[in-house]
Design a protein around this nucleic acid. Structure first.
Lengths: 140, 140
DNA sequence: TTCCAAATGCAACGCCGTTGCAATAATTTT
DNA sequence: AAAATTATTGCAACGGCGTTGCATTTGGAA
């Protein structure tokens, strides 16, 4: 269970207005335990879901460093809560994601990620994106 | 320049019919030097491009192991030629991709890729997907 | 309470990708 | 080489994801 107080505090600290809608959305993220949620999944759990408002809410959350985008192989967007040290326009959590090829469930992976891959000379690498694909524990 | 003979041979060896359209599409891939091309980019270079036919052509190429999908951060599909040892339903080339955040140019990266990341116990990892993002030599 | 800026809800749009179906073209068979 | 078979093409229509513009409502500050 997520405490109302914690939700409000999180919105406040990220300079986001405490509207009913945003509280609902943030609660879903905080209750999802590191799972990345799609617009569709969020809509199905919301009270009075307006697609467009949800899109804009997620974009606002992302801009303020509250959530981050996790690549989905199907081309849709999935977001997950950032760790504590992400702030506005400064996402610091460089971690891998896992996506189940059957149910689409996507989670953030904890722990160390070591990547060795080289871009050609003259290229500038700014971010590394690692996604593991396979079967989750429920689809195996 | 790509030789007609090589195009036909490649289609033949992958059990694909040698139609005018497919020859055109394959030629674009063979001339692109490891760059991953989107439907849009292909359409703009084709003679008489039918969107739907192009989608199906790419799917056929992929099924037969001629091309592979490279993740695009914007959620669209980009394909690139496979290396020689890919065959029907058996893609062997596990390599990273680089995508420019400005122009979208996407290339296959050669060389070794070492990944250390752990999925939770009970999960089965089947594929690892590594994409580097940044600026290409022309956008820097 | 008043005011302003931000967030919401609605309508409309554009792009990516897919499906069904009839017409056409490439192989295979005789 | 013609007929039969099978795959491919082109077209129409559709659905989903995501965006933009605009009027209305709401949250927060003065």
């Amino acid at each position: 269970m997520v405490r109302e107080e914690d939700i409000l505090q999180k919105l406040e600290s990220h300079q986001l207005r405490k509207t009913a809608f945003r509280k609902e959305v943030l609660e879903l993220f905080m209750a999802s335990e590191g799972e990345a949620l799609s617009n569709q999944e969020l809509e199905s759990q919301l009270d009075n879901p307006d697609r467009i408002t949800l899109y804009r809410t997620l974009k606002a959350f992302e801009d303020k460093g509250l959530i981050h985008l996790a690549a989905d192989s199907g081309g849709i967007s999935r977001y997950a809560l950032c760790l504590a040290d992400c702030t506005t326009h400064a996402h610091h959590d460089q971690h891998a994601h896992f996506q189940c090829r059957t149910c689409g469930k996507t989670i953030c992976l904890e722990g160390e990620v070591v990547i060795r891959a080289q871009a050609p000379a003259g290229y500038k690498v700014e971010r590394e994106n690692l996604t593991l694909e396979g079967l989750c524990d429920e689809c195996i």
